[in-house]
């Protein structure tokens, strides 16, 4: 039943986003593992569409915030305004009070605004003038980011990158997919016609099931070997944190569930590894990240 559910979701998304099965599956795994997602790519490859499609198919309420350099934390969190009739301040909720927030081009905002968002992500609540407001459950942030070498960006510091469970890239569609895209109907239109495949309640249930996927000692050995390698090989400035290890395991469970298994195998870890570590590690040598990620996977034997 669970696999049917996830298959339906994937099918629905893939009918809108063409030729991107793997990133779509990763994005879904990220959400089922209760993680926030960072999509990094050039403008116009479908980042926003992916976020929007995910929200729709999962039946989540959706808000989109376009980040700019003059944006203030209040623009996301909300603001208290004096109401002259009631003679008191009332809190006007910002766009963050939703189930799925698309933070578009997060690296265009000032660090102050970025950190306001990321704190809310971490704590699942917002505190304004001493008063705390819980965010909704489920609550996800999908942030998109332009590659850093573009002008006018504030790169996210490492500590904040760590808050995102996964970072994925979409890339250009292949020849066939692009052709279908160019010849097919307008994506916006398609989105409007798309139905929710599950309810938010059902999504919480899926998350529950995923967290109970079996994890053997042998697999933990493998994850630890991977973590240890990043710390000891000397190729990176810092090794992976335990939080990264936890994320890897959470995501691998979700991935195993999507693949219809109730236990995790090494291939699950391998499939997720690039998405989980690429934004967390910094190689000493300037090599493309895909190179060293594959290098890690090939250097570490499966115990």
């Amino acid at each position: 039943m669970t696999q049917d559910g996830t298959d339906r979701i994937l099918h629905a998304i893939n009918s809108v986003i063409l030729g991107k099965q793997q990133p779509v599956k990763l994005a879904l795994a990220c959400i089922i593992a209760r993680g926030h997602l960072l999509i990094e790519d050039l403008p116009g490859v479908g980042k926003t569409t992916l976020a929007h499609t995910l929200a729709t198919t999962l039946g989540l309420r959706f808000q989109r915030v376009q980040f700019t350099s003059d944006m203030l934390p209040a623009d996301i969190l909300g603001v208290s305004i004096y109401d002259p009739e009631k003679h008191q301040f009332s809190f006007h909720r910002g766009p963050i009070f939703t189930q799925l927030l698309l933070a578009d081009e997060i690296n265009r905002a000032s660090p102050r605004t970025q950190s306001a968002l990321l704190e809310a992500m971490e704590e699942q609540q917002v505190t304004i003038e001493g008063e705390s407001f819980s965010l909704e459950d489920p609550f996800f942030v999908i942030a998109t980011q332009n590659p850093l070498h573009q002008i006018g960006t504030f790169p996210l510091p490492e500590s904040q990158l760590d808050r995102f469970l996964m970072r994925i890239q979409l890339g250009y569609p292949d020849h066939q997919a692009e052709r279908a895209l160019l010849m097919g109907e307008d994506r916006r239109q398609m989105l409007k016609q798309l139905d929710a495949q599950i309810t938010p309640l059902k999504l919480l249930e899926l998350q529950q099931i995923a967290s109970k996927v079996l994890l053997s000692d042998a697999l933990v050995d493998y994850v630890q070997a991977l973590l240890a390698y990043t710390r000891q090989s000397g190729q990176f400035y810092n090794g992976l944190s335990p939080r990264a290890g936890l994320g890897l395991i959470q995501a691998a469970r979700a991935w195993a569930m999507i693949n219809g298994r109730d236990f995790v195998i090494p291939e699950d870890v391998q499939a997720l590894f690039p998405g989980i570590v690429q934004h967390r590690l910094q190689a000493r040598e300037h090599l493309p990240s895909t190179d060293w990620v594959n290098d890690i996977l090939q250097q570490v034997a499966i115990p």
């Binding site: 195998i265 090494p266 291939e267 391998q270 034997a301 499966i302």
Partner: peptide, 9 residues
């Protein structure tokens, strides 16, 4: 079997 190759693969 290569050392880093998963059993499924």
């Amino acid at each position: 079997k290569r050392p880093h190759e998963g059993p499924e693969d």
